[in-house]
Design a protein around this nucleic acid. Sequence first.
DNA 1: CAGGTGACGAAAT
DNA 2: GATTTCGCCACCT
Length: 97
Amino acid sequence: MRTELLEQIYTIVAQIPPGRVTTYGRVAKMTEGATARMVGSAMRHLPDGHGLPWHRVIAADRKVADHGGAARQRDKLRAEGVLFDANGRVDATRLWP
DNA sequence: CAGGTGACGAAAT
DNA sequence: GATTTCGCCACCT
C-alpha cells in the first residue's frame, strides 16, 4: 500500500550516511514502485523535527533541487563536509549507492 | 470526473 | 550545455 512505499522512502533516506548523498531517482528505485516525484513530494511534506536527513537527497544531476529550502539544504550539506564545485554540483564520489 | 501541479528524470532538440 | 517534451503518479481544485 502507499504508506508502505512512504515507509520505505523514509527508511532509505534515514540510511544515508553523514557526508554522503543520493538522488531522488536512486531512492525511488530502491523502493518497489515509487517514482522520483513521490520521493520529492514525501520530502516536501516532512514536518519539522522528524530527524530525517532530507538534505542528503539531491537531484540526478548532482545539484540541489530547486525549492524553498535549497539554500538551507546546501548549508547543511556543506556543514557535513560535502563540497560543491563551481557549478554547484556535489562530488560524484559522495554519492551513496 | 477532468485538469493542473510538483524537492524528478531521461531523452530529444 | 541550455531548453523543451514527455513519462511518471499522488494530490488538490
